[in-house]
């Protein structure tokens, strides 16, 4: 079979056509290595070495000045049996993960769904909803501590205006501070929302038309068409959400500093690592904390991966089978 000109341009145009054999490029191995070397350098010196080093340090007492001293499992024993702040930080982190991940997903789906509705100016609405996620975390947090300020913040003024006599003190009240962070997270939902929006727009309209012909209600269409087809996106958001929430730091750190959170109601796991490393100068202990965080995150991710077969619907099969 001789290849026509059209085949040469698009060899797979006709079903059954066979791609012409590729010529083996003769590229020197050294050249390939040189091209890869920036990445290799980065992965070895900025990822692999620090990881191996911190793993070693997690079994040592290391204060930056003196040579690390091998202490075996002491750091881990201290973490689980002596360090109250570890448990406080872990509890706060689990709380924020458990509340914020489902809320963010629900809010993102809802927002994305709303944004599929406008027939005119949809791109403007989408941009407006996406914009907050582009605001730097520090600036966003500072703005939130201002608008939620119990004395002069507009939120409490509004709440008082509608008859709530004693609105919460938000970031200044240990009982409400984490809720302030949750609201801050929901405000910056844009990145998650955009993924759900792409997923929603990808649902074949024929399915909705068929459901409509069968007499399905709006809720039934959502429950039996939209939601199942969104499960891969929900799964993705859950996994990335868990990883992100266990590393939750910037917003909490900034808000804590803004309102003097001496009660540690916004003290999270990543804050504890930072505090141990750069305030207490206990690099060994901080490394141990970081490795425990990795294990916790891995375990949570594995649990989600294991359970996905039960609830994630892949129209074309799962990548994780």
């Amino acid at each position: 079979m001789s290849l026509t000109r059209a085949h040469a341009i698009s060899p797979f145009k006709k079903k059954g056509d066979i791609a012409p054999p590729r010529k083996k490029l003769k590229v020197p191995r050294l050249f390939i290595f040189l091209c890869l070397s920036p990445w290799l350098f980065g992965i070895i010196f900025f990822t692999a070495y620090p990881m191996v080093s911190s793993f070693y340090q997690s079994f040592t007492k290391f204060n930056l000045i003196e040579t690390p001293q091998w202490v075996g499992l002491d750091n881990f024993h201290r973490m689980f049996f002596e360090d109250d702040d570890f448990w406080k930080a872990l509890k706060n982190t689990i709380w924020i993960s458990a509340i914020s991940i489902p809320l963010r997903i629900c809010f993102a789906i809802f927002t994305a769904w709303v944004l599929t509705k406008p027939k005119r100016g949809s791109s403007i609405y989408r941009t407006i909803f996406f914009l907050p996620s582009m605001v730097p975390a520090v600036a966003g947090t500072m703005a939130f501590t201002y608008i939620f300020n119990p004395a002069y913040g507009p939120i409490n003024k509004m709440l008082e205006a509608i008859g709530i006599k004693e609105p919460p003190f938000w970031f200044m009240d240990p009982a409400w501070s984490k809720w302030g962070l949750i609201l801050l997270g929901l405000w910056g939902i844009g990145d998650t929302m955009i993924i759900f929006l792409a997923g929603l727009l990808d649902v074949p309209t024929s399915l909705y038309e068929a459901a409509e012909l069968e007499g399905a209600s709006g809720w039934q269409s959502f429950r039996y068409i939209t939601l199942p087809l969104m499960t891969p996106v929900i799964f993705f958001s859950t996994v990335t959400g868990v990883i992100g929430s266990f590393q939750y730091f910037t917003q909490a750190y900034v808000a804590s500093g803004q309102v003097n959170d001496y009660s540690h109601s916004m003290y999270f796991y990543a804050t504890h690592i930072y505090h141990s490393a750069f305030k207490a100068y206990e690099m060994g202990y901080a490394s141990a904390l970081a490795w425990v965080l990795l294990v916790i995150t891995l375990l949570c991710t594995l649990v989600i991966l294991k359970t996905q077969k039960r609830w994630v619907h892949y129209p074309n099969g799962s990548l994780f089978k």
Binding site: N260, Y262, S263, K279, A280, Y281
Partner: peptide, 18 residues
């Protein structure tokens, strides 16, 4: 470390006053 006893006492004072 970085004068941790100061921040710990400050935390206690805040917890106490609240």
């Amino acid at each position: 470390g970085e004068h941790l006893e100061e921040s710990m006492l400050q935390n206690l004072m805040a917890s106490w006053q609240a």
